[in-house]
């Protein structure tokens, strides 16, 4: 087990390296650079720009530039933003990252809490009215784009019924303690459900299919032949096996939540990493784009690493291979 984890962590390192190369390469491959915007200003002579390029190291060979960037990143220096008056990128991200984390966690908890019980219940009552209902919901959920589901939720649950706030993270200043918590939670409801909609559909379908498949397997027949109760067969023998593919999905879920957050946060005007990312793209704020790209990629890698380790905990066949 320890060997497996160590091996898996070691595999993580070259992947991380590749990711930094890609993030850097993509930013470099995009047209223009930090000074492109200022080129349009006729008051700045061309020579001055060239001097500043030289000073910033933008004329250095590409590997030197990469090395400089990488060593800065390694020390926690993600550069400075251009759209926000040269504020360090790190500050910008720190100010927003927790909002996105709350949104992701809320969405994930809701997804699992809804999808897994419904998936199990659906499988238990295959082809029942409930099962058909859940299946219809799943396909609708999969087919509805995030932004549309978000707008629909705002129109219906916020404007028509007024149940939940439609934007931001808090509605009033000066709240504290439990009240603040509840207020934040209420703000999370609409974006959280919107963000989790597609995943809920996917997990529900996976859960249902897996349980149905495992129910027909030989070892479940053995479990019945041992005289175990229905619940013991379902919750011990079936579920433990059915959760294995769900864990793989969870590994991808981290990346999915963060990238989905870009659109969802924009729709709900939610001040997280996603809105920052979107703004940076429209303003060609490359240092911020690179930083967020890097964070996204590392999160996905970490998610997969965690999934692999957790996978081994659940499925003994993996540990010794």
């Amino acid at each position: 087990m320890h060997k497996y984890i160590i091996r898996r962590v070691l595999q993580f390192i070259p992947m991380l390296f590749l990711v930094t190369v890609l993030v850097f390469g993509l930013a470099k491959a995009a047209p223009g650079d930090v000074l492109s915007g200022e080129m349009l200003d006729p008051n700045i002579p061309h020579e001055v720009l060239e001097q500043r390029r030289e000073a910033l190291g933008l004329n250095d060979p590409i590997h030197i530039q990469y090395w400089n960037w990488l060593s800065a990143v390694a020390q926690g220096d993600l550069g400075t933003s251009m759209q926000y008056a040269n504020r360090p990128v790190m500050d910008l991200i720190q100010a927003r990252v927790m909002n996105t984390v709350y949104l992701a966690i809320f969405s994930l908890v809701v997804t699992l809490a809804v999808a897994i019980p419904i998936g199990i219940y659906s499988a238990q009552r295959k082809y029942s009215l409930f099962d058909y209902g859940a299946t219809t919901f799943a396909f609708l959920g999969l087919a509805t784009p995030n932004f549309f589901a978000g707008l629909l939720a705002i129109w219906l649950l916020s404007f028509q019924f007024g149940w939940f706030p439609a934007q931001g993270t808090t509605s009033a200043v000066g709240l504290s303690g439990f009240e603040l918590f509840v207020d934040k939670l209420r703000h999370l409801v609409l974006p959280g459900f919107t963000l989790g909609l597609a995943s809920t559909a996917v997990y529900m379908r996976y859960m249902r299919t897996e349980i149905l498949e495992i129910k027909g397997s030989d070892f479940i027949r053995t479990a019945h032949a041992k005289g175990l109760t229905k619940n013991s067969v379902l919750y011990k023998h079936t579920l433990r096996n059915a959760l294995i593919p769900i864990i793989t999905l969870l590994g991808f879920e981290f990346g999915f939540l963060l990238s989905g957050a870009v659109i969802t946060e924009a729709v709900f005007n939610y001040p997280g990493i996603g809105t920052l990312f979107l703004n940076s793209i429209s303003n060609r704020d490359y240092p911020v784009i690179m930083a967020i790209n890097l964070i996204l990629a590392v999160t996905i890698l970490l998610g997969n690493l965690l999934a692999d380790i957790f996978y081994a905990v659940v499925d003994p066949r993996i540990r010794y291979d």
Binding site: S217, D218, F219, R221, T222, A223, A225, H237, R240, N241, I244, V314, D315, P316, R317
Partner: peptide, 14 residues
């Protein structure tokens, strides 16, 4: 009761 397929008749995760 014992079955034909010993390879698949035991639960792999326990």
């Amino acid at each position: 009761m014992i079955f034909q397929e010993p390879m698949t008749s035991l639960n792999p995760v326990f």
